[in-house]
Simulated assay, not measured.
Amino acid sequence: MEFVRYNSALTVLDLAGEFLAKQEAIHNLPLGILRQLAKLEKTSGSIPNDMLMALGIDEENFVKVVLVRTPPRNLIICGQLSVLKKAAQWIYSIGIDIPGVVGCTDTSKTFANEWSNLTGHRAVACMKQNIYQLKNLQEYPRKPGRLSYATEDDIALVMSWTEEFEEEALGLTEHPNLEETVRKEISNNQVFFWRNDQCTPVSMAKRARELPNGIVVNFVYTPEEYQRMGYATTCVGALSERLLNEGFKFCSLNTDAENPTSNSIYMKIGYEPIGDAVEYRFEEISNSP
């Protein structure tokens, strides 16, 4: 088993795209990020040099492990369980420090346990996720209103709702480059509101990573004053319908496995669970009494 680090997302996709596409929706996170980086590389000629993109390749030249990290985010890992310990050992051997890991449940657990053995850090499971896929939209109760793009006039609101989503759903307390990110998302028509019959934004969802055949929906957020009214269901349902009508064969999203409300919302629309994932945070163990 050989591990190779690359500085070209186009090269990584060329080598590992088929491996990831075998489970396209389950691998939506690493596959989608690599495709975003490859698009950036095509247009600008380069990508940020602090990215970690690596593959584990066996003696027959088959990809067995894919590793992707966009600092300061956690390491994303997917691959065969039998080689994940070697992947952790390789990252440790080249001196890369990582704050955590995310991937399919057995995958990230195996890696996290080995990382703990190597570093002495405690691996804390901080988020369990369900991975969903939608191919056919089901009928569901729709609230009055309409789906619309967020515009430049909505930047402050989208920033606020994005920040609140990151804090509530992801546990993030720092939001670097938030305004720049939101402005870019809005200019690319990635942010959608469901507006009620008074044209007030009451729920938000974003179209995110494009896959070879599908697309990811994320950042589904409804402020507290509009929760439990069916707006999130309507917003995600309307956006998913729009994306399927654009020609995508499926929509995919990840949810907090311990949030029964959000999981119920998606299944009402027709999203089906196809896998699960878990995110681990690595913590130093204090030796002080």
Rank of each mutant, 00 (worst) to 15 (best):
P141D: 11
F250C: 08
S46P: 02
D58Q: 07
S46Y: 14
C78W: 02
L75W: 14
K22I: 05
C235W: 08
I215V: 15
Y266I: 05
A21V: 14
K184L: 10
N7T: 09
A205M: 09
G32W: 00
W115T: 00
I269T: 10
K22E: 15
A169N: 05
E167M: 00
L157D: 13
G120M: 00
I77M: 03
V12M: 05
I285Y: 13
A112F: 08
A38D: 06
L81Y: 11
A9S: 08
E225N: 08
H27F: 07
G79Q: 00
D97Y: 03
V68G: 10
E114G: 02
A156T: 13
K42D: 12
E60G: 05
C104R: 14
I76T: 03
A150I: 02
N287R: 05
L170I: 06
G247I: 11
L172E: 15
A112T: 05
F282A: 12
V217E: 06
K268Y: 02
V65W: 01
P223A: 13
E174R: 06
G79D: 12
K249E: 11
Y149M: 11
G275Y: 00
Q198N: 11
A21Q: 15
S286A: 08
Y226C: 03
N117H: 09
N218E: 09
Q36A: 02
Y132A: 07
G100T: 02
E224K: 14
R73N: 15
T119L: 03
F193R: 05
S46N: 10
G79I: 02
L15T: 13
V278E: 10
E224Y: 09
W90E: 11
E166A: 10
I94R: 00
L34R: 02
V83W: 00
T110H: 14
G247C: 06
E241F: 14
L243C: 10
M51F: 15
Y266H: 12
I94M: 08
F192R: 04
E168C: 03
V4L: 14
K109G: 06
I76A: 10
I33R: 11
D153P: 02
T261H: 02
E174M: 04
V124E: 14
D197I: 04
G145I: 12
K128C: 03
T233H: 01
S8R: 15
A156L: 04
P223T: 00
G45T: 09
E18R: 14
L178S: 06
P72V: 08
N189M: 06
P48Y: 01
T105E: 07
T173M: 13
P71C: 09
A54T: 01
C78G: 03
P289R: 07
L178W: 00
F250S: 09
N245W: 04
V220R: 06
S8G: 05
S116M: 06
F248H: 15
N245G: 12
K85D: 09
Y280G: 01
L118I: 07
T70L: 15
